[in-house]
């Protein structure tokens, strides 16, 4: 089976300091990859290079056989435009990043209308469906400021899903939430995972990572320090990984 997205030799520098030192990662259709590690280890940067929000200084980002990154010199993979990649990849941010000047339903409807070119009425209908799926249809006309953090994040997930992405990226989706609101967001993500959506999740929620992760990546200081499959949390032997998991759990 071909990977949905492949990273090869991803390096990223901010000014003179390099934060990613060559990352190789394959994400297969239907799989759930979880990335964790201490802050500053580069896990968000890896995630953000998957939709080119962070453009790698070097390396290859191949999505369904098309190169969107800087690429590997001499490689003949066809190249694509960033915007075409982003239209197939959904992203959920730590800070939600809902549009504060639009109601919940308009946050979704604008995206559908602007990206797919559907009429405004069709876009609203699609938006209503997506809100219903995350249990927030009743809050359709509320503005982000009138929603709890958990509700905002669920709207943000609904907004990303409204564009029928093939891959969903989650950048610490529950880190900005009050503890009692984490559950509702994880429940939506769990439901999504069960539908077979391909997901890459950067998270500090180790319980959740263990539950859904079938590819587990531990990052440290700009490297993939350790990785494994679904049984990673029970079987890993790396001392640093165990220390980290121990300190978070």
């Amino acid at each position: 089976m071909n990977a949905l997205i492949s990273l090869r030799g991803i390096r990223k520098s901010f000014g003179t300091s390099e934060v990613l030192h060559g990352i190789d990662l394959d994400v297969y259709p239907g799989s759930h990859t979880v990335i964790f590690g201490p802050s500053g280890s580069g896990k968000s940067t890896v995630l953000r290079s998957m939709n080119l929000l962070e453009e790698p200084t070097e390396g290859s980002v191949v999505f369904e056989g098309v190169e969107y990154g800087p690429g590997i010199p001499g490689d003949a993979t066809p190249r694509g435009k960033k915007i075409d990649l982003r239209r197939q990849v959904g992203m959920v941010f730590q800070q939600f990043n809902l549009f504060p000047h639009l109601s919940a339903i308009d946050n979704i409807a604008l995206s559908v209308h602007a990206v797919t070119g559907k009429s405004k009425d069709e876009a609203l209908e699609r938006a209503a469906q997506e809100l219903k799926n995350v249990g927030l249809l009743k809050w359709a006309m509320n503005y982000p400021a009138q929603l709890s953090g958990g509700q905002q994040q669920r709207v943000a997930i609904a907004r990303a899903l409204s564009l029928d992405p093939k891959l969903m990226l989650f950048d610490e989706p529950t880190s900005a939430l009050d503890p009692e609101l984490v559950g509702e967001v994880l429940a939506v993500m769990r439901k999504l995972a069960e539908t077979g959506m391909t997901m890459v999740v950067v998270t500090h929620e180790m319980g959740f990572a263990k539950e859904i992760g079938d590819q587990c990546i531990f990052m440290d200081q700009g490297y993939i320090a350790d990785s494994g499959g679904a049984d990673f949390f029970d079987t890993c032997t790396n001392k640093r990984t165990k220390e980290f998991i121990g300190s978070v759990l």
Binding site: L53, I83, R86, R87, F93, H101, S111, A114, A160, L163
Partner: peptide
């Protein structure tokens, strides 16, 4: 306007003009 707003528009696959017109400018 918070930079996350532009990023959200980019991540959704909106064009630069659309991000400016519908997201950044109203705010």
């Amino acid at each position: 306007v918070h930079k996350g707003q532009r990023e959200a528009g980019q991540a959704l696959g909106m064009s630069r003009l659309r991000i400016f017109r519908s997201i950044v400018m109203p705010q």
